[in-house]
Design a protein around this nucleic acid. Structure first.
Lengths: 269, 269
DNA sequence: GTCCGAGCCTGACCCTGCGTCAAGGTCAAG
DNA sequence: CTTGACCTTGACGCAGGGTCAGGCTCGGAC
């Protein structure tokens, strides 16, 4: 007859674990000797070892109970399920390893390297810090939602930045940063933005075609969030969007040419 | 500005988790709007994404805190450590997968495939169920304590089973199952067991030599446990062991030839 | 105006799988 | 008779949140 600590040693678990299994009814309480000590037979070691095998395979203790009673059919199904879970766990950990590696390599935690380079280039070209900050925050959000599309998206942005006319337009839009909603410069700013959008869309299409990919589509939700970031970051943003609609463009992040609807044109007057 | 649920969605965590991080001081509480709602900027998304990257890598939240503040040097060391842990985790899970696979292949829990085959062979040869059950439990215990030795041990047992004379002896020992301590067949059973032991030891040595390994040594402790299983399983076991001592053998699991001590011989009379 | 569903707030308890005291009773050896 | 190793029950603690409960607020539809 074994004491609890002998039992535990044989099965390779702690005494506390054994008592825990008793408490949750997983291992039946054995009989007690005259002084109240638990006394186990060798069968208990076998039971305990079986429990451990399943528990170490990641089976929750509550399920181990049913599993040990289960017949071959049911048991095989359960085992298959456990194996699936283990495989998923392994894949997950491998993914985390890659993440962590990137985290160690790039100095920026939430931004992919391409985006870091892009922001750096903006700084070189003299964009205001405020604008760059908003760009950065936006790219963090984009990277979080659609990491795979980042390369193509960044290629488009880079091409825009290195395109002479577009860069000039883009830089001239920097007024954005310090306009109030009733600033007299706004209509002319809107004109410049409209010109920019016109030219930029063809560049984007060309770059995407070059990369032999279709231009990535930003989800409605993400688009809305980025628009919110934009509107909240610049006091004049809401008004600017109105002016852009007058000029035939709707949206900001996912900007689209509007169909020339007459009633709209009327509102313009 | 984002609400807590937007923040959570963008970082891929639950709202509850965000609040938890606030509670433990991992993520700073943002400012509140007029009605007490938390309002986040995109920077919070960055913070949260960094926290998740580390947490998902298995870093305890308490350490994530220090890690995010740590400089490049210290940080790199920590990341290496995390990676090491992830690799170990992956290996562990792969081990469990193998365990589970074996567990599914053999229909018996906690038994290596070789042992399952051995028990199957015993069943074919007509050993009583009770005897086979005890064998099974014993092998579970052995496999738990010295899994690496199982192949050699099983090879020995298999050889014993396929050895004509030995098999005959072994089968004839099946009386064991239903003898009481004062059964008249016991002395003759003891004779047969003694014969068996004599022959078996040479087979064991030969098989081990064939496998180019030394015959595995079962630890004193395990030996004692297995003897206990034996004694508890068969009512006549204790008496049989006495009779065997009379015949010059001591122990059961790790049976040894006794030195011919005269006082013992006297007891026989 | 008001009504509804969705979203926010705090506070509190629940879960797993044990670890870790606390406060005592027991056992075998010296 | 003491000492130290074990045993007992009971209780609280941990991470990392999940899940109410009970109440306030928001935005849109009617």
């Amino acid at each position: 007859m074994l004491t609890i600590s002998q039992l535990a040693r044989y099965a390779g678990v702690t005494v506390r674990a054994v008592r825990h299994y008793h408490a949750i009814g997983l291992l039946p309480e054995p009989c007690r000797d005259h002084s109240g000590y638990r006394r186990y037979d060798a069968g208990a070691v076998v039971d305990l070892i079986r429990i451990r095998m399943l528990a170490e395979g990641g089976v929750p203790l509550s399920r181990v109970h049913q599993l040990l009673d289960a017949g071959g059919e049911e048991f095989a199904a359960e085992v298959a399920e456990i194996d699936r879970r283990l495989r998923a766990d392994i894949r997950e950990r491998q993914h985390h390893r890659r993440q962590i590696a990137r985290l160690a390599a790039g100095d920026s935690l939430a931004l992919p390297a391409e985006a870091v380079a892009y922001l750096e280039r903006m700084r070189e070209l003299g964009f205001p810090d405020r604008v760059i900050e908003i760009e950065r925050d936006s790219w963090i959000l984009i990277a979080a939602q659609m990491p795979d599309e980042i390369p193509v998206l960044m290629a488009i942005k880079h091409a825009t930045l290195e395109h002479e006319t577009l860069r000039r337009h883009y830089l001239s839009m920097a007024d954005l940063a310090d306009c109030s909603p009733d600033d007299p410069r706004l209509p002319s700013l809107a004109d410049r933005v409209a010109d920019f959008l016109e030219a930029a869309s063809t560049v984007a299409t060309a770059v995407a075609a070059d990369a032999a990919e279709e231009e990535p589509v930003v989800s409605e939700e993400l688009s809305a969030l980025l628009d919110t970031v934009f509107v909240e970051s610049f006091p004049c943003a809401a008004r600017l969007l109105e002016l852009l609609e007058d000029r035939g463009w709707t949206g900001w992040t996912s900007v689209r040419r509007m169909e020339p609807v007459l009633p709209r044109r009327c509102e313009e007057a």
